[in-house]
Design a protein around this nucleic acid. Sequence first.
DNA 1: TAAAGCCAAAATTTATAAATAATTGGGCCG
DNA 2: CGGCCCAATTATTTATAAATTTTGGCTTTA
Lengths: 232, 232
Amino acid sequence: MSSDLPSQKVDQPATLATTIYARLKADILTTRLEPGRKLQSRFLMEQYNVGQTPLREALNRLTTEEFVVGMEQRGFYVKEVSKEELQELTKTRCWVEGLALRESMQNATQAWEEALLVAHHRLDRTPRSLQPDTFEDNPDWEKVHRAFHATLIGLCGSRPLLGFCEQLADRLYRYRMMSIAKAYPARKVGAEHSDILQAVLARDSEQAVRLLQQHYRRTADVIYSDLDGLLA
Amino acid sequence: MSSDLPSQKVDQPATLATTIYARLKADILTTRLEPGRKLQSRFLMEQYNVGQTPLREALNRLTTEEFVVGMEQRGFYVKEVSKEELQELTKTRCWVEGLALRESMQNATQAWEEALLVAHHRLDRTPRSLQPDTFEDNPDWEKVHRAFHATLIGLCGSRPLLGFCEQLADRLYRYRMMSIAKAYPARKVGAEHSDILQAVLARDSEQAVRLLQQHYRRTADVIYSDLDGLLA
DNA sequence: TAAAGCCAAAATTTATAAATAATTGGGCCG
DNA sequence: CGGCCCAATTATTTATAAATTTTGGCTTTA
């Protein structure tokens, strides 16, 4: 199974620092804490009900992951977004996941193909929005979406590379969240996932990689044009 | 110039947490703090003369970079080494830097070629060991060595990718430090760097990438065989 | 009058220290 | 062998102190 891929620490009791780290990260990625916002310790301490020690530990962890920028002696800020970064992240993801998918397919096993099929089926079944007309984020969708993409590259044979891909996915997730409400009606993302699955099952690496990269590029293009309005 | 590539924060005053972070990282990478060692707070506080706040902040940063492993409720340990990780890191570095070098060469400029030439010249001039017969680490060598490799991929156009490469270099550096004294007389690493430079200047991407990957693979092979004795 | 420079007060971040809580691991005893 | 208690360590809170940045007003100068 691949259900234990994303988080290594399964049954660890979790310290407060780890808990607050996860909450902060989630709030940043969903832009509940908007890009560029100052993260004042007093505000966060009462907002999340923690002491300064676990709070600062969480902020320091987020700093090395670049979700938070720490200005020495001047406190912490939520990392800014920019069109340039969106492009760089997307380009990098296309390169690296292209590579990882190729390797993954080279190591393909029957169990992996079956897991991928299941992951895709779950994705296909989960509605993107909780309401058909207006967009209301369905938190389950992101989970199964991530699982599908993680399974794709999961057999590449490099944990460091998988970790890097996960980080790229996180950083790009925030950009997606910024424009999703607007882009929701336009995009037909389900077909793209199906096409990728078909290519993988047909063992056509070149095609699979091309489709995966196209998928990421299209997503970025939609966000890119939206970003004009959002950054104004 | 490319002299400001590695560290973004040039003139920041640096907090204690940042200072202790850098010292700990250096001590772990050079194996002055050996793999697997328990990092007790009391010991570190007196060893480095800092309070627990900046210390824990530093440890938390190192945790997200995987130089330190944090067992929840059970303190921190220096990340272990293993032959498997050495192989994974090397494989990943070959993939990713191969990709980055190809991109870099596609974006090649005259200034870049000249910077590379200079970087190689400096590397060529700097002795590996302070003494000709026995090995005594020359700290300058690692600096110029890193600069040469960083310049090679510096034009790839992706800061996230460069950051990832830097992290891989850090993590592999520790393995090199473990076996360098033994491997010193055997290896003729100077020629390999020259060959890479030649291929780049000849604009032969395929050859340059192949030589770079061979360079990393050979290094790993030497360490790999040494590691039997070192892990026993 | 406006702009620039300067100084002191206020706010904030950073660091220390000490006390408390929580958890682990080992040893003892039944 | 299992359960319980104790010692050691880690995690967290709280309070406080030190250092630094920010703010706002004041003066000086163009």
